[in-house]
């Protein structure tokens, strides 16, 4: 069966700050980022849905020694989306030098950031961003 939600489709939507995922018609779970089958029950009976883009920070780090092609410092974190899955993204709108454990638990709204990519990345890279809401 055709791949329902490809990385390309996910990235194109993310560039419009829309978070696409897969909702399982068998168990109801959300799979995001996409996979061929449901993350919970492996069913292929999935539909492409737009998620709310809201979540809560679970953990984070401030990267000081970056990979080639990135400029430090910047914050990477994982948020639990309102629909359940966890997602990795850059936490933005917070000074990396001021990032503390208080970030954990903050409500965040999803956005995106485009990285031009490098010789290994098969094109541009689109990162999820999380903006803490006060």
């Amino acid at each position: 069966m055709e791949y329902k939600l490809t990385a390309k489709m996910f990235a194109e939507a993310l560039k419009e700050n829309r978070l696409l995922g897969l909702k399982c018609n068998r168990c109801g779970a959300y799979t995001v980022p996409p996979k061929k089958v449901c993350l919970e029950c492996a069913s292929e009976d999935l539909e492409v849905v737009e998620l709310s883009g809201w979540g809560q920070i679970q953990t984070f780090t401030v990267i000081q020694v970056p990979p080639e092609g990135f400029e430090a410092p910047y914050i990477v974190g994982m948020a639990e989306l309102d629909e359940g899955p966890w997602l990795m993204g850059n936490i933005v709108g917070v000074d990396p030098d001021e990032a503390t454990m208080d970030l954990i638990g903050k409500r965040v709204k999803l956005g995106h950031k485009i990285h031009p990519g490098d010789k290994f990345s098969a094109g541009e890279m689109v990162a999820v961003t999380f903006s803490p809401q006060t």
Partner: peptide, 21 residues
Amino acid sequence: SRYEAPTGITFPGIFAMMAHL
């Protein structure tokens, strides 16, 4: 490579997130 590398995550970064959690 599609859903994590674009953030600039590093190997130490994964374990740093583990430590905070």
